[in-house]
Amino acid sequence: MSHPASASRYFVPQPSHWPLVGSIALLLLATGAVLMMNSVANGGFVLTGGFVVLAIMLFGWFGRVIGESEGQRYNLQVDRSFRWAMGWFIFSEVMFFVAFFGALFYIRVLAIPDLASPEQAALWEGFQDAWPSAGPGASDPFSQMHAWGIPAVNTLLLLTSGATLTWAHWGLIAEKRTQLIIGLLLTIVLGVIFLSFQVYEYGVAYADLNLKMTTGVYGSTFYMLTGFHGFHVTLGVTMLTVILFRVLKGHFTAERHFAFEGVAWYWHFVDVVWLGLFIVIYWL
Protein backbone atom coordinates (compact mmCIF):
# COMPACT_ATOMS: atom_id res chain seq x y z
CA MET A 1 0.00 0.00 0.00
CA SER A 2 1.42 3.40 -0.95
CA HIS A 3 1.44 6.36 1.40
CA PRO A 4 1.56 10.00 0.36
CA ALA A 5 4.94 11.57 0.99
CA SER A 6 5.30 13.88 3.96
CA ALA A 7 7.67 16.80 4.37
CA SER A 8 9.58 15.03 7.16
CA ARG A 9 9.95 11.59 5.56
CA TYR A 10 12.47 10.88 2.80
CA PHE A 11 11.35 7.97 0.63
CA VAL A 12 13.85 5.09 0.49
CA PRO A 13 13.02 2.53 -2.23
CA GLN A 14 13.12 -1.20 -1.71
CA PRO A 15 16.15 -3.17 -2.96
CA SER A 16 16.00 -3.45 -6.76
CA HIS A 17 17.32 -5.95 -9.30
CA TRP A 18 17.44 -3.33 -12.06
CA PRO A 19 21.04 -2.20 -11.41
CA LEU A 20 22.12 -5.82 -11.90
CA VAL A 21 20.17 -6.02 -15.15
CA GLY A 22 21.84 -2.79 -16.28
CA SER A 23 25.28 -4.22 -15.47
CA ILE A 24 24.53 -7.30 -17.57
CA ALA A 25 23.44 -5.04 -20.44
CA LEU A 26 26.70 -3.07 -20.28
CA LEU A 27 28.73 -6.28 -20.19
CA LEU A 28 26.94 -7.60 -23.27
CA LEU A 29 27.35 -4.29 -25.09
CA ALA A 30 31.09 -4.08 -24.38
CA THR A 31 31.66 -7.74 -25.23
CA GLY A 32 29.64 -7.55 -28.42
CA ALA A 33 31.44 -4.40 -29.55
CA VAL A 34 34.86 -5.96 -28.96
CA LEU A 35 33.86 -9.14 -30.79
CA MET A 36 32.57 -7.15 -33.76
CA MET A 37 35.69 -4.96 -33.95
CA ASN A 38 37.78 -8.12 -34.07
CA SER A 39 35.50 -9.80 -36.65
CA VAL A 40 34.55 -12.62 -34.27
CA ALA A 41 31.48 -14.63 -35.21
CA ASN A 42 28.20 -13.80 -33.41
CA GLY A 43 29.56 -10.51 -32.09
CA GLY A 44 26.59 -8.71 -33.61
CA PHE A 45 24.14 -10.99 -31.80
CA VAL A 46 25.84 -10.30 -28.48
CA LEU A 47 25.73 -6.54 -29.14
CA THR A 48 22.07 -6.72 -30.12
CA GLY A 49 21.33 -8.71 -26.96
CA GLY A 50 22.99 -5.95 -24.94
CA PHE A 51 20.73 -3.33 -26.48
CA VAL A 52 17.65 -5.48 -25.82
CA VAL A 53 18.59 -6.02 -22.16
CA LEU A 54 19.35 -2.29 -21.82
CA ALA A 55 15.91 -1.39 -23.22
CA ILE A 56 14.25 -3.81 -20.78
CA MET A 57 16.19 -2.28 -17.90
CA LEU A 58 15.27 1.29 -18.87
CA PHE A 59 11.60 0.42 -19.35
CA GLY A 60 11.40 -1.48 -16.07
CA TRP A 61 13.46 0.85 -13.89
CA PHE A 62 11.92 4.09 -15.14
CA GLY A 63 8.49 2.47 -14.95
CA ARG A 64 9.08 1.75 -11.28
CA VAL A 65 10.18 5.32 -10.61
CA ILE A 66 7.14 6.67 -12.47
CA GLY A 67 4.89 4.42 -10.40
CA GLU A 68 6.45 5.67 -7.17
CA SER A 69 6.05 9.27 -8.32
CA GLU A 70 2.42 8.87 -9.35
CA GLY A 71 1.80 7.06 -6.06
CA GLN A 72 2.88 10.26 -4.27
CA ARG A 73 5.83 8.58 -2.60
CA TYR A 74 8.16 11.54 -3.23
CA ASN A 75 8.22 14.73 -1.22
CA LEU A 76 9.88 18.03 -2.11
CA GLN A 77 13.20 16.88 -0.72
CA VAL A 78 13.25 13.93 -3.14
CA ASP A 79 12.22 16.30 -5.94
CA ARG A 80 15.17 18.52 -5.03
CA SER A 81 17.56 15.58 -5.20
CA PHE A 82 16.24 14.72 -8.68
CA ARG A 83 16.92 18.29 -9.79
CA TRP A 84 20.48 18.19 -8.49
CA ALA A 85 21.06 14.85 -10.20
CA MET A 86 19.75 16.12 -13.53
CA GLY A 87 21.81 19.27 -13.20
CA TRP A 88 25.03 17.29 -12.63
CA PHE A 89 24.15 14.96 -15.49
CA ILE A 90 23.76 17.89 -17.90
CA PHE A 91 27.02 19.35 -16.56
CA SER A 92 28.77 16.07 -17.41
CA GLU A 93 27.31 16.30 -20.91
CA VAL A 94 28.58 19.87 -21.20
CA MET A 95 32.07 18.65 -20.30
CA PHE A 96 31.74 15.86 -22.88
CA PHE A 97 31.21 18.40 -25.66
CA VAL A 98 33.79 20.79 -24.19
CA ALA A 99 36.40 18.08 -24.78
CA PHE A 100 35.51 17.86 -28.49
CA PHE A 101 35.29 21.64 -28.90
CA GLY A 102 38.67 21.85 -27.15
CA ALA A 103 40.16 19.34 -29.57
CA LEU A 104 38.86 21.39 -32.51
CA PHE A 105 40.27 24.58 -30.97
CA TYR A 106 43.66 22.93 -30.49
CA ILE A 107 43.73 21.71 -34.08
CA ARG A 108 42.70 24.99 -35.69
CA VAL A 109 44.47 27.51 -33.45
CA LEU A 110 47.61 25.64 -32.41
CA ALA A 111 48.37 22.48 -34.40
CA ILE A 112 47.65 23.63 -37.97
CA PRO A 113 49.61 26.92 -37.66
CA ASP A 114 52.50 25.08 -36.01
CA LEU A 115 52.65 22.43 -38.73
CA ALA A 116 52.64 25.18 -41.39
CA SER A 117 55.34 27.25 -39.64
CA PRO A 118 58.81 27.74 -41.14
CA GLU A 119 60.25 25.52 -38.41
CA GLN A 120 58.21 22.60 -39.75
CA ALA A 121 58.80 23.34 -43.44
CA ALA A 122 61.39 20.60 -43.78
CA LEU A 123 58.85 18.03 -42.57
CA TRP A 124 55.70 19.29 -44.33
CA GLU A 125 56.83 21.28 -47.34
CA GLY A 126 54.03 23.24 -48.95
CA PHE A 127 51.54 22.71 -46.13
CA GLN A 128 49.37 25.81 -45.68
CA ASP A 129 47.85 27.31 -42.55
CA ALA A 130 44.25 27.15 -43.74
CA TRP A 131 40.93 25.71 -42.61
CA PRO A 132 39.31 23.38 -43.46
CA SER A 133 42.28 21.09 -43.71
CA ALA A 134 42.70 17.34 -43.71
CA GLY A 135 46.14 17.78 -42.19
CA PRO A 136 49.64 17.47 -43.62
CA GLY A 137 50.27 14.65 -46.05
CA ALA A 138 46.59 14.25 -47.01
CA SER A 139 45.98 13.85 -50.71
CA ASP A 140 42.27 12.97 -50.96
CA PRO A 141 40.37 16.15 -52.01
CA PHE A 142 37.12 17.12 -50.31
CA SER A 143 34.71 20.05 -50.07
CA GLN A 144 33.56 21.87 -46.95
CA MET A 145 29.98 21.63 -45.71
CA HIS A 146 28.69 25.21 -45.88
CA ALA A 147 26.44 26.86 -43.31
CA TRP A 148 23.73 28.42 -45.46
CA GLY A 149 21.80 25.35 -46.47
CA ILE A 150 20.64 22.39 -44.44
CA PRO A 151 22.68 23.48 -41.36
CA ALA A 152 20.89 26.85 -41.30
CA VAL A 153 17.51 25.15 -41.71
CA ASN A 154 18.35 22.74 -38.90
CA THR A 155 19.34 25.67 -36.69
CA LEU A 156 15.93 27.26 -37.30
CA LEU A 157 14.23 23.93 -36.57
CA LEU A 158 15.97 23.48 -33.21
CA LEU A 159 15.42 27.09 -32.15
CA THR A 160 11.74 26.73 -33.01
CA SER A 161 11.54 23.46 -31.09
CA GLY A 162 12.88 25.23 -28.00
CA ALA A 163 10.07 27.78 -28.34
CA THR A 164 7.36 25.12 -28.80
CA LEU A 165 8.65 23.21 -25.76
CA THR A 166 8.56 26.39 -23.64
CA TRP A 167 5.02 27.02 -24.90
CA ALA A 168 4.09 23.48 -23.84
CA HIS A 169 5.59 24.16 -20.39
CA TRP A 170 3.47 27.29 -20.06
CA GLY A 171 0.44 25.16 -20.90
CA LEU A 172 1.33 22.69 -18.16
CA ILE A 173 1.74 25.46 -15.57
CA ALA A 174 -1.57 27.03 -16.64
CA GLU A 175 -3.24 23.56 -16.65
CA LYS A 176 -4.05 23.85 -20.35
CA ARG A 177 -3.59 20.23 -21.38
CA THR A 178 -4.38 20.80 -25.07
CA GLN A 179 -1.63 23.44 -25.33
CA LEU A 180 0.73 21.09 -23.49
CA ILE A 181 0.04 18.18 -25.85
CA ILE A 182 0.26 20.26 -29.04
CA GLY A 183 3.50 21.91 -27.88
CA LEU A 184 5.10 18.57 -27.07
CA LEU A 185 3.96 17.03 -30.35
CA LEU A 186 5.34 19.96 -32.35
CA THR A 187 8.67 19.71 -30.53
CA ILE A 188 8.94 16.00 -31.30
CA VAL A 189 8.06 16.53 -34.98
CA LEU A 190 10.66 19.29 -35.31
CA GLY A 191 13.27 17.02 -33.71
CA VAL A 192 12.48 14.20 -36.13
CA ILE A 193 12.70 16.59 -39.10
CA PHE A 194 16.09 17.79 -37.81
CA LEU A 195 17.38 14.21 -37.67
CA SER A 196 16.02 13.47 -41.14
CA PHE A 197 17.83 16.49 -42.57
CA GLN A 198 21.03 15.44 -40.82
CA VAL A 199 20.84 11.96 -42.36
CA TYR A 200 20.32 13.58 -45.78
CA GLU A 201 23.24 15.94 -45.12
CA TYR A 202 25.53 13.00 -44.33
CA GLY A 203 24.51 11.34 -47.58
CA VAL A 204 25.38 14.49 -49.53
CA ALA A 205 28.67 14.84 -47.66
CA TYR A 206 29.71 11.28 -48.52
CA ALA A 207 28.48 11.16 -52.13
CA ASP A 208 29.07 14.71 -53.39
CA LEU A 209 31.67 16.32 -51.13
CA ASN A 210 33.87 13.28 -50.42
CA LEU A 211 33.67 14.30 -46.75
CA LYS A 212 34.18 11.16 -44.65
CA MET A 213 35.54 10.05 -41.32
CA THR A 214 38.74 9.18 -43.19
CA THR A 215 39.05 12.71 -44.62
CA GLY A 216 41.78 13.68 -42.20
CA VAL A 217 41.27 15.80 -39.13
CA TYR A 218 38.46 17.89 -40.63
CA GLY A 219 36.30 14.90 -41.49
CA SER A 220 36.85 13.20 -38.15
CA THR A 221 36.04 16.29 -36.06
CA PHE A 222 33.02 17.11 -38.25
CA TYR A 223 31.41 13.70 -37.80
CA MET A 224 32.38 13.27 -34.15
CA LEU A 225 30.83 16.59 -33.13
CA THR A 226 27.73 16.53 -35.35
CA GLY A 227 27.26 12.77 -34.92
CA PHE A 228 27.31 12.86 -31.13
CA HIS A 229 24.96 15.84 -31.21
CA GLY A 230 22.59 13.89 -33.45
CA PHE A 231 22.75 11.02 -30.94
CA HIS A 232 21.75 13.45 -28.18
CA VAL A 233 18.88 14.78 -30.29
CA THR A 234 17.70 11.19 -30.74
CA LEU A 235 17.77 10.67 -26.98
CA GLY A 236 15.91 13.94 -26.50
CA VAL A 237 13.19 12.99 -28.99
CA THR A 238 12.82 9.62 -27.23
CA MET A 239 12.46 11.26 -23.83
CA LEU A 240 9.99 13.83 -25.14
CA THR A 241 7.92 11.00 -26.64
CA VAL A 242 7.81 9.25 -23.26
CA ILE A 243 6.74 12.52 -21.62
CA LEU A 244 3.98 12.94 -24.24
CA PHE A 245 2.61 9.47 -23.50
CA ARG A 246 2.68 10.26 -19.78
CA VAL A 247 0.79 13.50 -20.41
CA LEU A 248 -1.83 11.58 -22.41
CA LYS A 249 -2.22 9.26 -19.40
CA GLY A 250 -2.92 12.27 -17.18
CA HIS A 251 0.45 12.50 -15.42
CA PHE A 252 1.92 15.75 -14.05
CA THR A 253 0.33 18.70 -12.31
CA ALA A 254 1.07 22.39 -12.41
CA GLU A 255 2.99 22.06 -9.14
CA ARG A 256 4.75 18.71 -9.58
CA HIS A 257 6.21 17.92 -12.99
CA PHE A 258 9.96 17.51 -12.60
CA ALA A 259 10.21 14.78 -15.28
CA PHE A 260 8.89 17.28 -17.84
CA GLU A 261 11.29 19.96 -16.61
CA GLY A 262 14.28 17.61 -16.62
CA VAL A 263 13.66 16.64 -20.25
CA ALA A 264 13.11 20.31 -21.14
CA TRP A 265 16.49 21.21 -19.57
CA TYR A 266 18.12 18.49 -21.64
CA TRP A 267 16.46 19.67 -24.86
CA HIS A 268 17.52 23.28 -24.31
CA PHE A 269 21.06 22.05 -23.65
CA VAL A 270 20.96 20.24 -27.02
CA ASP A 271 19.79 23.49 -28.66
CA VAL A 272 22.69 25.48 -27.18
CA VAL A 273 25.26 22.87 -28.25
CA TRP A 274 23.94 23.02 -31.81
CA LEU A 275 24.35 26.81 -31.90
CA GLY A 276 27.99 26.32 -30.95
CA LEU A 277 28.40 23.64 -33.62
CA PHE A 278 26.76 25.79 -36.28
CA ILE A 279 29.18 28.63 -35.54
CA VAL A 280 32.48 26.74 -35.24
CA ILE A 281 31.87 23.82 -37.63
CA TYR A 282 29.81 25.32 -40.44
CA TRP A 283 30.17 29.10 -40.30
CA LEU A 284 33.73 29.98 -39.20
Rank of each mutant, 00 (worst) to 15 (best):
Y282E: 11
I56Q: 02
R64S: 15
G71D: 09
P13Y: 07
L20Y: 09
F101I: 13
H268A: 08
A138Q: 09
P151M: 07
P132T: 13
V98A: 14
L156W: 09
I193W: 01
V233L: 06
F101Y: 13
P113W: 07
Q72C: 09
I243N: 00
G60P: 03
P19M: 11
A174G: 10
G126Y: 06
G43P: 01
M36F: 00
L186D: 03
G183R: 01
V280L: 06
S161A: 14
G250F: 02
H146P: 06
F101L: 12
P19R: 01
V53T: 10
T234N: 05
M213H: 06
D140M: 13
H251C: 12
G32W: 02
G171D: 04
Q144K: 14
G135H: 04
F197L: 15
A254H: 03
L27V: 14
A25K: 00
S139F: 12
W61I: 06
G230H: 01
M57L: 11
L195M: 15
Q72A: 12
V78E: 10
S161Y: 04
S220M: 11
S23D: 11
Q128T: 15
V237N: 00
N42V: 12
T234F: 15
W88R: 10
S39I: 08
L35Q: 12
F194C: 03
Q14A: 14
G22L: 09
Y200D: 14
N38H: 14
V273M: 00
M145Y: 10
F100H: 01
F11T: 07
L27N: 02
F197S: 04
F231H: 06
H232P: 05
T226F: 04
A30N: 08
A264D: 12
T187W: 04
F260D: 01
G276I: 10
G43E: 09
Q144N: 10
I150M: 08
H268P: 04
G250I: 05
